[in-house]
Amino acid sequence: MNLTYRILLTFNATSLIIVVFLIKEEITLNSLCNDFQCLPHYVSYVIYFLAPVILTYLSLLISKFLGTANISKGSILEVENANNAFLPSYLGYFFVALSVNNEETLIFVFIILFIFTFLSQTLYFNPLFLIFRYHFYNVTTNNKAKLFIISKNQITKVDDIEFPILKRVNNFTFIDKSK
């Protein structure tokens, strides 16, 4: 389950590059299938955008099947908000999508980004999580472990923080299910 889930998270984190390319190239559903000839272009673009949003929501739902961990109160040394730290990297994906000239290049670039994101073990940053009110944090524990936590909780002070119900994506990335 964990491997499948990580593949889904990786796809979710990189799929907007495909959406941006499809919109840039004005590839619409009515150009792909005669049954959709009466649809305005913007309907295609909304559907393209909704696909990664729905997959992201699905990944949040099935995260309950991942292994459980916790971080107890008093074991966290430092918390850094990571919402903005990954945004420049993610915007880079958009610029790549805008500069790709054809489908073959897009597929090749997407596969490379997918592999690097998957192998990085920590870059499951997906701005679509923000739609579902999740935030990203880099957490340093008292044993010097640096963890990436995806949580709905707003963290402002280190003193009181605990994560009693974490779902383990990998050894460095967790989704907080307490709330």
Rank of each mutant, 00 (worst) to 15 (best):
N2S: 12
Y5M: 11
Y5T: 10
I7M: 09
L9M: 13
T10K: 01
T10R: 03
A13Y: 05
S15P: 01
S15N: 07
S15V: 06
L16Y: 11
L16F: 14
I17R: 00
I17H: 00
I17F: 06
I18F: 06
V19L: 05
V20N: 00
F21A: 01
L22W: 02
L22H: 03
I23K: 02
E25R: 14
I27W: 02
I27G: 03
T28I: 06
S31H: 05
S31G: 05
S31Q: 12
S31V: 03
L32I: 13
L32W: 10
L32S: 05
C33Q: 06
D35S: 10
D35E: 09
F36S: 03
P40M: 06
P40E: 08
P40H: 08
H41M: 00
H41I: 01
Y42L: 13
S44A: 06
I47C: 10
F49Q: 04
A51Y: 11
V53Y: 09
L58A: 10
L58C: 12
L58V: 15
L60Q: 02
K64E: 09
L66C: 06
G67N: 15
T68V: 12
T68F: 02
A69F: 01
I71D: 00
S72I: 03
S72N: 09
G74E: 07
E78F: 15
V79I: 15
V79N: 06
V79A: 12
E80I: 14
N81V: 11
N83T: 09
P88D: 02
P88R: 06
S89W: 11
S89A: 12
Y90W: 15
L91Q: 05
F94Q: 08
F94T: 15
F95H: 02
V100E: 02
N102S: 08
T105I: 15
T105K: 13
L106S: 10
I107D: 01
I107S: 08
F108V: 14
F108A: 15
V109M: 07
F110E: 04
L113I: 11
L113A: 13
F114A: 10
F114Q: 09
T117I: 11
F118S: 05
F118C: 08
L119F: 14
S120A: 14
S120V: 14
Q121N: 14
T122S: 10
Y124Q: 04
F125Y: 15
N126C: 11
F129P: 00
F129H: 15
L130Y: 03
L130C: 07
F132K: 09
R133A: 14
Y134V: 02
H135Q: 13
N138M: 13
T141D: 07
N142K: 15
N143P: 03
K144H: 14
A145Q: 08
K146A: 07
I150W: 04
I150K: 03
K152T: 01
K152S: 01
N153L: 11
Q154P: 03
V158T: 14
V158G: 00
I161M: 10
L166W: 04
N171L: 08
N171R: 11
T173D: 06
I175K: 00
K177I: 00
K179N: 09
